[in-house]
Design a protein around this nucleic acid. Structure first.
Lengths: 201, 201
DNA sequence: GTCTATAGAGAGATAGAC
DNA sequence: GTCTATCTCTCTATAGAC
């Protein structure tokens, strides 16, 4: 969030908005310069290359995600922690749909210059979910007197929950924007809370 | 699946493999020609443009998804239908990871030449999930004597379940390939069956 | 620190021989 | 039906004035 002259911010904002619809490779430096209202030379004064510009963009955007999730979780445990994490992630997606789109399209690419950076950030965010899931899983299993079904697979369960929120959040924002935030959050939580499964008596 | 001379198939296969890692925009027609073992002129003999080539690719790949899902669901109802759909989708992702990656990165793009085609195919696949979810939701609610929580929001719940499977499937294939298929399927189903939620007594 | 102008490489697409 | 050769345009990146 270095502000320097404001030019850097304008460039990053323009790059994000363009890349959200065209993708990174489909966004040209000329496009970014025009949208940011600066000359192309200024792009290369502030960022050494196109790759480096988008790496900085992803680092700024995704980098704060894990912190936001940790803050949302706070001291909550069990299902309450899951609810808080889902709501926080959904809010962040809604507040920054462009970044969410970009993340969805870049997260499984393995040929990028910024691959290591993005992998680390993604891993950090997933870990917050995984920790909450391990704890909730064990607690729910203990109270029901059964074995925790997700033992050892909490990173898969974490990506499952993360994917559920990301996909429905974007489905909402891109294709069904008339729905309310609460409606979307409720539907996601319903799908995760066993509303579809038979209740063991 | 028109086979003509085999050249068309070779081109489509090469294009898919390349686009899975580099993205469509990042894949050049020269790359595709080299990988397919044909000259670039043959690409344009079989497909009128790069856009048309990738539209055909997505149509072939995603187009058969809804059929496969409908077949997996069969006559199953309730949670059994959800289990079958999740397993079938996971199997398809595992069998064609390249296409799954491509779909994940293209599904929310709104500036593509083939946008309408992809939207329709995506909608068709989601509808299979939504129908099963509506039915399972109502059944579970009836047997528990509560209101169906997802009433009216089955498309959001469908994308939630779809997103859960897609994201964990790719997490598995790209980052944790040492896990077994059954382990992954179990973790996804656990996250959807309410393993994390407190059981109402 | 920002601009204009341009170099140099790489892209999609076509023409015409075989 | 497949090839080689090439056209034309666009892209990243740099040079140098202000």
């Amino acid at each position: 969030m270095v502000r320097s002259s404001g030019t850097k911010r304008a460039i990053l904002d323009a790059a994000l908005e363009l890349a959200a619809t065209r993708g990174i490779t489909g966004t040209t430096m000329d496009d970014v310069a025009e949208r940011a209202g600066v000359a192309k030379g200024s792009l290369y004064y502030n960022f050494s290359s196109k790759d480096q510009l988008f790496e900085a963009l992803l680092e700024e955007g995704v980098g704060s995600l894990a912190d936001a999730l940790r803050e949302a979780r706070g001291e909550l445990v069990g299902w309450a922690a899951i609810e808080a994490l889902v709501a926080a992630l959904l809010d962040r997606i809604a507040a920054n749909a462009a970044l969410a789109k970009l993340m969805a399209s870049e997260i499984f690419r393995t040929d990028r210059a910024w691959q290591k950076t993005l992998f680390a950030l993604r891993h950090e965010a997933l870990t917050v979910f995984a920790e909450a899931i391990e704890q909730a899983d064990a607690a729910a299993a203990a109270s029901a007197g059964t074995a925790a079904p997700g033992a050892g697979a909490s990173t898969i369960m974490a990506s499952s929950v993360f994917g559920a929120v990301l996909m429905s959040g974007l489905e909402w924002l891109v294709f069904e924007p008339e729905r309310s935030r609460d409606e979307v959050a409720a539907a996601i939580l319903a799908s995760l809370s066993g509303a579809l499964a038979p209740r063991p008596s």
